[in-house]
Simulated assay, not measured.
Amino acid sequence: MNWLLVFVGAAVGAPLRFLTDRAVQARHDTVFPWGTLTVNVVGCLVLGGLTGAVTAGAASSQVQMLVGTGLCGALTTYSTFSYETLRLAEDGARFHAVANAVVSVVAGLGAVFLGVAFANAWTG
């Protein structure tokens, strides 16, 4: 039954990633991949909060599979981040490529720590 939880979460996460990426990118007239950055940082925040909740006993392993593995797994995209960073570098937008790599890692780690801290404060 665990596979079904992952499947349902992914069935929500994948279209959510696509729609969010398109909506965010449409608002910015730049080569910088704001849409991918947004979904990855939001996914890190959600996963951090979920991890904190599971660690505190406030969320079950089933929720972890549904939201963590399924939704966040399909929402976030390391492969697209890597491809877009490489594309920026190859197209001569090296500053944007480096900025994308640095901002993605720093913001992603910051978001996951913030999510864990929020969950710890919430679950007390």
Rank of each mutant, 00 (worst) to 15 (best):
M1T: 08
M1W: 09
L5R: 09
V6H: 04
F7C: 11
V8R: 04
G9R: 01
A10S: 12
A11C: 07
A11P: 04
V12W: 07
G13E: 00
G13S: 00
A14R: 01
A14N: 04
P15W: 05
P15N: 08
R17F: 12
T20V: 05
T20L: 02
T20E: 00
D21S: 05
R22A: 15
R22S: 13
R22P: 03
A23S: 11
Q25K: 11
H28F: 15
D29C: 05
V31M: 10
V31G: 13
F32Q: 01
P33A: 03
W34Q: 08
G35V: 01
G35W: 01
G35F: 00
L37W: 13
N40V: 03
V41Y: 06
V42N: 00
V42S: 05
G43L: 05
L45V: 13
V46L: 14
L47R: 04
L47A: 11
G49Y: 00
L50A: 09
L50W: 03
G52I: 10
G52C: 10
A53L: 15
A53F: 06
A53C: 12
A56S: 15
G57Y: 01
G57P: 03
A58I: 08
A59L: 09
A59Y: 07
S61I: 04
S61E: 14
Q62D: 15
Q62G: 13
Q62R: 12
Q64V: 08
Q64T: 13
M65I: 14
L66R: 06
L66K: 05
V67K: 05
V67G: 06
G68E: 04
G68R: 03
G68N: 07
T69K: 02
G70E: 00
G70D: 06
L71Y: 09
L71Q: 06
C72N: 12
C72M: 13
C72L: 09
A74W: 02
L75M: 04
L75E: 01
L75K: 04
T76K: 01
Y78F: 15
S79L: 13
S79M: 14
T80N: 12
T80V: 06
T80I: 08
F81A: 00
F81T: 03
F81R: 03
Y83I: 06
E84A: 00
T85N: 08
L88H: 05
A89R: 12
E90H: 08
E90Y: 02
E90I: 01
D91I: 05
G92N: 12
G92L: 10
A93I: 03
R94W: 15
F95D: 13
F95R: 15
H96L: 15
H96A: 15
H96R: 15
A97Q: 02
V98D: 04
V98I: 14
A99Y: 08
N100Q: 10
A101G: 10
A101W: 02
S104M: 01
S104Y: 00
V106C: 08
G108N: 02
G108V: 02
L109S: 12
L109F: 15
A111E: 00
F113S: 06
F113K: 07
L114I: 14
L114M: 11
L114E: 07
G115R: 09
A117R: 11
A117W: 09
A119R: 03
N120T: 15
N120S: 14
N120L: 14
A121Y: 02
A121N: 05
G124A: 12
